[in-house]
Simulated scan of single mutants.
Amino acid sequence: MDDVEKRTLFPGLQVSQDALLKLLDSKHMLILHVEDLKHQLASSETVLESIIQQEEHILEAQAALSDPIGY
């Protein structure tokens, strides 16, 4: 479709090529940012799981040390 056809079919639509390119660039940057956030979340979840496991080991050790000897 050429510009004349577009203006005829969509008279209220007045988006420049430059504005469209800026919008696509913004979309691309947003996608990259979301992917980065997903990676950070996955990394944080891994760290959190490690902390929880360490906490469980500490609690087990504390329980073993607090049991009377011979039980």
Rank of each mutant, 00 (worst) to 15 (best):
T46K: 14
S50Y: 00
S44D: 03
P11R: 00
F10M: 00
L21C: 13
E35H: 07
I31Y: 07
M1E: 07
I58M: 11
Q54W: 02
E45M: 09
I51W: 04
Q62S: 05
H28W: 15
L30C: 15
S66M: 07
L9E: 01
E60L: 08
P11A: 05
E56I: 01
S66L: 02
E45F: 13
L13C: 02
K27S: 14
Q62N: 01
K6E: 06
R7S: 03
L37H: 08
D2M: 00
E35L: 13
Q53G: 04
Q17A: 09
D2G: 15
P68F: 03
E56L: 02
D3H: 08
P68A: 14
D67L: 15
D67R: 14
K22M: 05
D25I: 06
D18K: 08
T46A: 12
H28K: 12
D2Y: 00
Q62T: 05
T46H: 11
Q40Y: 03
Q53R: 03
L48P: 01
S43P: 05
E55G: 10
D25R: 12
V34G: 09
S26R: 07
L65V: 14
D25A: 11
H28Q: 15
Q17Y: 07
E49Q: 14
T46E: 02
L13G: 02
K6H: 03
M29S: 15
H28I: 14
V47L: 11
L37M: 03
K38T: 09
L9N: 02
V4T: 11
Q14E: 09
L20E: 01
E49T: 01
T8Y: 05
